[in-house]
Design a protein around this nucleic acid. Sequence first.
DNA 1: TATATTTGGACATTATTTGTCAAGAACTTT
DNA 2: AAAGTTCTTGACAAATAATGTCCAAATATA
Lengths: 106, 106
Amino acid sequence: MQNLDSIGTQIRNLRETAEMPLRKLAALLDIDQSTLSKIERDERKPNAQIIEQIAKIFKADKTALLVTFYSDIVAYEIQEENSFSEILQVAEAKIEYKRTKAKKSK
Amino acid sequence: MQNLDSIGTQIRNLRETAEMPLRKLAALLDIDQSTLSKIERDERKPNAQIIEQIAKIFKADKTALLVTFYSDIVAYEIQEENSFSEILQVAEAKIEYKRTKAKKSK
DNA sequence: TATATTTGGACATTATTTGTCAAGAACTTT
DNA sequence: AAAGTTCTTGACAAATAATGTCCAAATATA
């Protein structure tokens, strides 16, 4: 089954498994250690570029991390809506429709 | 099948069907007419409160409008990602998981 | 052409995000 | 318990994005 951990938790897991201090990972990513601390506790969002670097550093699956990253954002955004399920369904249809159009116009 | 129009298009449709000038709807909503013009062309996002007012004014389905509104946002956010479908799936699982926890703690 | 309607762009204001720093809390080691 | 290391917290400024307002230009209608 898919991993429902937050992006922060996943980053922390990767880092702790590698027994790397937060300070050191922050240095590798060239961000302040307090910022990384907040990212790992989901107080602040990383950007897609940081996720890519983390995947590289820990040889982790970049796509899986991006899925975690974006699903966090999407879930947070609509978690209060009762029709969240329909929202997601329509969003998917919209993206698919857009891609179909894009393909045709080639 | 579900309506894949953008929130702006749907608002414009409602307004034109009612043959109401943009200027007048803007007045009812208490926003600048240029702002409403931009909303209808998806240059600017309405907020959830404006959507509610529009539903009331045109006696439209509020839930359907909110689904349109949020699905626009979600689709825009992840439209470039190849794994958009998985992202949506995980987002849904995360929300469901959160709600299960919330129910238990009652 | 005159009139009504809509759009575009400039601008100030406000809110949100991001980066940086330093102090303090928590935990380990000596 | 002192010293060292690691992590967390809050304050702050700087950068970026969102919002509200105005008015002139463009478009459509009478």
